[in-house]
Nucleic acid binder design. Structure first.
Length: 632
DNA sequence: GGGCGGCTCTTATCATAGAT
DNA sequence: ATCTATGATAAGAGCCGCCC
């Protein structure tokens, strides 16, 4: 760092000065004279300092002057953004002031996710008609073989979270059922599986990737790391509201980029030859004991273990690490990190001072939090606000929900409210459950039906000829799926809505009709997303009165959507197998259209009925639900 | 008939509690 | 530590009713 220090410092100083000028100008414009004067004073001070320095060059220790300012309550006070601190520190103060306002919150709230280069059209063209199941199988094997975690794989290869990876690997959708966006991960998997270099890179990248973890650990809820010597993240230590203005290491911060070229800790760890972990931990323990500082505090402040982590995992983790340190050679790169931190901390002459300062600030913060009532957890404006906490349904609640779903997968608002009231849950939670359950039941059903088509007749008297297709079995729930799904909204003949356009009865309609909606709210199910690009995948059944399920047919999809954009994609995507499948689908669609239109002149149909039926049946899953209702 | 807002749907994904 | 299951959310879309 030393060779860069001077130039970096100069850059920082210059930018600091520029920012000060800007701030001064802004203050002036906004009429805030007090603030304006403050900035002017600071500019003046800099000028004096600069002229003084020009006669006597700065010492190399300038960056460390008043090291206590690196603590949270040092120069971090907003009201005195810079006095007595180095240009670097001052710059950081300014930075944090910026970050503490508007867009800074956004930056902090949502650390940029891994952004992978988009898949080129060429790649899209190259990888068509992938067998997702086989691909997933292969990927699983590779991950297992190379001990690559789903998280790592997701973040580095797919650009997705671990949960998404898990979902993809556990329940791969058929290629034909995926949108272009949905296909991307599979294409990436394919590329990955075909590239041995990628696996090596991924493994090599493992530790670097792991380094991203502290973002979760550090940024969220604790001022952890405050007392760590500013090796890798000097910017972290500036805050007037410690839980608000923290700038996590991994958050790309344009204000810092390129200014401080300090090595990342992980690089430092990698470069560290050998540490006697026992010696390091013994010295740390001695010092902590001598100065009466808790190991927990040390863990939070120096090792970057947040309170949350400590509580959530095991309180004794720091203690374990200090009392039973693993030998250096047995530690992974990441495992070595805490020891490097300890080592750096030991080398820091101001270590205890910083820690004490941190301790005091923590105490003060907790007092403030306590007096303010709840902490910012619930505050949506807080940068630490995240999604609503996940709720866990009890078994009883699940049963109730399943029953309700069974009776009506599309409950009305009133029904949801009633259910929510009954179960002492929020309507939103119940709605979410229904939503997720519908989607996942459907997905599960697709899997169960394989990738084959399954058309069945809806027992719906609203159909002119009783020959509507439905995907009722797509609502089979985990507990009942061996017969025509009783959980489905089966509309009784007299329950159909006469106001509905003739021939249109979707499941929500029937569901609503079945439900005891007091106000007779007859909302229809909205059309599904027409983004589906494949034949047999378009879900818009509204006009044809059919429903989707595992690979259902869509008349409109074939007759309208496909010839357009989807067809364009398909034309490039179709391989020989797809062509056969498409041909069959087209046939099926024609049959279906005939049926839908009430045209029973089968003999005139260019498609041979028997032939079609046989083909259809051969393709359709042989489950009861599918076969029982085959009537024309 | 077109524009708009509200509603609810969809897919895709994130994020986390609990399990392993 | 990692995986799995699943609750929560984002974004985009279609349909309806209303208004002009």
């Amino acid at each position: 760092m030393a060779p860069q220090a001077e130039s970096s410092e100069d850059i920082v100083a210059r930018i600091y000065e520029e920012q000060l000028s800007k701030l001064a100008e802004l203050s002036k414009q906004s009429g805030n004279l007090a603030e304006y004067r403050l900035y002017q004073d600071e500019l003046q001070r800099l000028l004096v300092k600069k002229s003084a320095q020009s006669s006597s060059p700065p010492s190399s220790n300038d960056l460390q002057e008043e090291p206590q300012d690196l603590s949270i309550n040092g120069s971090c006070k907003q009201e005195s953004p810079s006095r007595g601190s180095s240009p670097l520190q001052q710059m950081q103060n300014i930075t944090n002031q910026f970050l503490s306002t508007t867009q800074a919150h956004l930056l902090q709230q949502k650390p940029l996710k891994h952004v992978l280069p988009p898949i080129s059209q060429e790649q899209f063209d190259k990888y068509t008609g992938l067998n997702t199941e086989e691909l997933v199988k292969k990927v699983k094997e590779l991950l297992s073989q190379y001990s690559i975690s789903q998280r790592l794989f997701g973040e580095n290869v797919l650009g997705l979270s671990q949960g998404s990876v898990s979902d993809l690997l556990a329940r791969p959708k058929a290629w034909s059922m995926l949108t272009q966006k949905g296909r991307e991960p599979f294409i990436r998997m394919k590329i990955f599986s075909e590239d041995p270099e990628a696996r090596k890179k991924l493994m090599a990248n493992q530790y670097r990737s792991n380094n991203a973890v502290p973002e979760r650990v550090v940024a969220r809820d604790s001022p952890a790391m405050a007392a760590v010597p500013s090796i890798d993240t000097p910017e972290r230590c500036h805050s007037s509201e410690m839980s608000v203005d923290w700038v996590p290491t991994m958050v790309p911060n344009p204000m810092h980029t390129g200014l401080v070229q300090a090595p990342s800790l992980i690089e430092l760890v990698a470069a560290t030859g050998q540490l006697d972990t026992l010696l390091v931990t013994s010295r740390v323990k001695e010092m902590l004991q001598f100065h009466n500082i808790g190991q927990k505090l040390f863990g939070e402040a120096v090792l970057g273990l947040s309170q949350d982590m400590l509580v959530h995992q095991e309180l004794g983790s720091v203690s374990d690490m200090l009392s039973k340190p693993k030998p250096w050679h047995l530690l992974s790169l990441k495992g070595r990190e805490p020891f490097v931190r300890m080592h750096l901390w030991l080398m820091d002459p101001m270590n205890i001072l910083r820690l004490k300062s941190y301790q005091a600030e923590v105490k003060a913060f907790r007092r403030r939090s306590g007096s303010c009532g709840t902490v910012q957890e619930d505050d949506r404006s807080s940068p630490f606000y995240s999604k609503k906490a996940r709720y866990s349904f009890t078994d009883e609640q699940k049963n109730m929900l399943r029953e309700a779903f069974h009776a009506d997968p599309y409950p009305s608002t009133a029904a949801v409210d009633a259910l929510a009231l009954k179960m002492e849950l929020s309507s939103k939670t119940v709605t979410n459950w229904f939503h997720n359950h519908r989607m996942r039941s459907k997905q599960q059903n697709r899997e169960e039906n394989g990738k084959l088509l399954c058309i069945k007749q809806e027992p719906d008297s609203n159909s002119l000829d009783g020959a509507r297709y439905s995907s009722q079995n797509s609502y089979t729930t985990d507990s009942h799926n061996s017969s025509p799904d009783p959980s489905l909204p089966v509309a009784s003949p007299d329950s159909t809505n006469p106001e509905t356009s003739p021939g249109i009865l979707d499941r929500s309609q029937s569901a609503l009709n079945c439900s005891s909606t007091p106000n007779g709210n007859n909302r229809k199910r909205k059309n599904a997303n027409p983004k589906y690009v494949s034949a047999g995948a378009v879900l818009d059944k509204h006009n044809s009165g059919e429903e989707d399920d595992g690979g259902e047919i869509d008349v409109t999809g074939l007759s309208e959507t496909q010839p357009q954009s989807a067809a364009a994609q398909l034309s490039t995507a179709a391989d020989a197998g797809d062509e056969v499948e498409d041909a069959n689908r087209a046939k099926i669609a024609r049959i279906e259209q005939r049926v839908t239109e009430g045209d029973l002149k089968w003999d005139d149909e260019v498609v041979d009925r028997q032939d079609c039926l046989q083909k259809l049946e051969s393709q359709v899953n042989t489950t009861d639900t599918c076969t029982e209702d085959w009537e024309f």
